[in-house]
Nucleic acid binder design. Structure first.
Length: 509
DNA sequence: ATGCATGAGGT
DNA sequence: CCTCATGCATT
């Protein structure tokens, strides 16, 4: 079997905890090159090696090869085995899309249900298209895979996307042809990112993809519409005829931002996934569906990636905001100028601290991202951008807001205890509590509403050491599980929740 | 940064 | 009444 094996074992493949492109926790590999000389599998343990590998096989025009996927079982390793795709009578490869998520080989097995015409071979641990299918003129569908492994409750993921180089989502992407220098530059970047970055909470990798005869460098995110990428800044003239418009406002300047000392580089453009490079435009297939992610375990793996990304972005955002000298309030108001709605300092603060529901975070992220993009751009053009304008003093007299009541600490503690056993007291229970503590029933009700809401906030990132041996339950109480993870007993903490949060906040950045 | 509150949209 | 997004007012 002609194959190339890409070994992404965490032990050998150290990748930075933050994404180069803002798309973290994933590496996407498009159309790995396949040597056509019948060479046996190769193990590649390093990106640079990988690229060399790719280079080696550049002249092999194994245009069409079936895709086989195998995944290491007990590690976060991802083995990608590729054998030549079948060629149709007319010599072309059919497009199509399929995708699978799995977290280990056991789940891989589940993929063998044929639901997506894929079969899993228990012995070889290979996921593949049935033989007949390969021979049919049927579309050979690209594979997208997310593999993840939990370590101490935190997840290391790898996301592998295999699509025919000239089809699928890439087909409609702007293309740029890489030069020798480009490749070297990429290599350099990758190597830098590989330096001494241990696998921690989330294994993330720069996006590497190669294909003969050119190298693909692509970022693809299943859930986000914002493509991001690094690659040697495309010199003018690199722009390609394409349906995709890269907003002129945002020249893709890779390293033009002032010396940011983070590994995180959010490079943003808008809209669709953007392939940086592909080989000469190929006859685009009319049928080019978007990659779909089929969730085997909805709400866990993928959302972990998602949450991780949100947190990372929040941090990035804050850093950027501060760098540019804006206050949270400024940003909130500024947003009002670009979008129908503006936001309060509170909201921005909560966003940065991830004190919002994941859903809310997701909603806000693109707005803030665009704002950052714009500001970056403006500051590049002229350093004299206008300072934010203060809000108009509105003299409207709406119903005056109820004055904020202060619930005594001991009562709050009691409510907290109650909440642990019954987070959703009914009317009578509410009344009972109100009487018991001699406060308005409405106040109690609102307290529980807010308490429940707090429960749904994004979990915070915690360093590995703190959670060693502790389980993390993403679907259960964030606070409680975090408390336990940190050896806290919520109910015994002096001062109740307030203190508890302070404790957790120590891990925030 | 956060506690209590509001109001819209849902059951 | 609830959830959810959001903010005033206060810490």
């Amino acid at each position: 079997m002609n194959s190339v094996t890409l070994d992404l074992h965490p032990e050998t493949f150290h990748s930075p905890p933050t994404s180069v492109l803002g798309f973290s926790s994933e590496h996407n590999i498009y159309d790995l090159p396949v040597p056509s000389d019948g060479e046996p599998s190769k193990q590649i343990t390093d990106v640079s090696e990988f690229i060399e590998e790719a280079g080696d096989s550049i002249d092999n025009d194994s245009e069409s090869s079936p895709l086989l996927l195998s995944v290491g079982a007990d590690t976060a390793a991802a083995h990608v085995t590729i054998i030549p795709r079948p060629t149709d009578v007319d010599g072309t490869t059919k497009p199509g899309v399929a995708s699978k998520n799995f977290t280990d080989s056991s789940q891989l097995t589940q993929l063998g249900d044929g639901s997506q015409e894929l079969q899993y071979d228990q012995n070889t641990m290979v996921l593949q298209y049935p033989q007949q299918l390969l021979q049919q003129q049927h579309s050979l569908t690209p594979l997208s895979v997310i593999g993840s492994t939990s370590i101490n409750g935190l997840t290391a993921e790898s996301n592998i996307v295999l699509v025919p180089a000239t089809q699928g989502p890439l087909a409609s992407c702007p293309t740029i042809q890489l030069t020798e220098e480009d490749v070297q530059q990429i290599q350099k970047q990758l190597q830098q990112r590989l330096l001494g970055q241990p696998i921690t909470a989330a294994t993330t990798m720069p996006i590497v993809a190669t294909s003969h005869p050119y190298v693909y460098f692509n970022a693809f995110s299943p859930s986000v519409q914002t493509p991001q990428f690094i690659v040697p800044a495309p010199a003018q003239g690199y722009t390609t005829p394409s349906a995709i418009t890269i907003p002129a406002l945002h020249p893709i300047t890779t390293v033009s931002t002032p010396p940011v000392t983070t590994q995180t580089q959010y490079q943003t453009t808008l809209n669709k996934p953007t392939s940086i490079l592909t080989k000469a435009p190929t006859p685009a297939t009319p049928n080019k569906p978007a990659i779909q992610y089929i969730k085997l375990h909805p709400g866990i793996d993928e959302s972990m990636v998602d949450l991780d990304e949100l947190q990372r972005f929040a941090k990035f955002f804050k850093q950027k905001r501060v760098e540019m000298g804006f206050t949270q309030g400024d940003v909130g108001m500024a947003l009002g100028k670009c979008y129908p709605n503006d936001f309060s300092q509170t909201t921005i603060s909560r966003f940065e601290a991830c004190n919002l529901s994941p859903q809310n975070m997701r909603k806000l992220k693109p707005l803030l991202q665009r704002w950052i993009d714009n500001q970056s751009h403006i500051s590049l053009i002229s350093s004299t951008f206008c300072s934010p304008t203060p809000p108009e003093a509105s003299t409207s007299d709406s119903k005056r807001r109820k004055k904020r009541t202060t619930i005594e600490d001991n009562i709050k503690d009691a409510l907290e205890v109650y909440f642990q056993s019954n987070p959703k007291p009914n009317t009578s229970e509410l009344s009972k509590l109100a009487v018991e503590h001699n406060i308005e029933r409405e106040v109690v009700r609102v307290w529980f509403c807010n308490r429940r809401q707090r429960e749904k906030r994004l979990p915070k990132m915690i360093p590995m050491q703190s959670v060693q041996g502790a389980m993390f339950h993403p679907t259960t109480s964030n606070e409680v599980s975090l408390a336990k993870a940190n050896g806290c007993n919520e109910q015994t903490i002096n001062g109740g929740p307030k203190k508890f949060f302070s404790y957790c906040d120590k891990f925030q950045q």
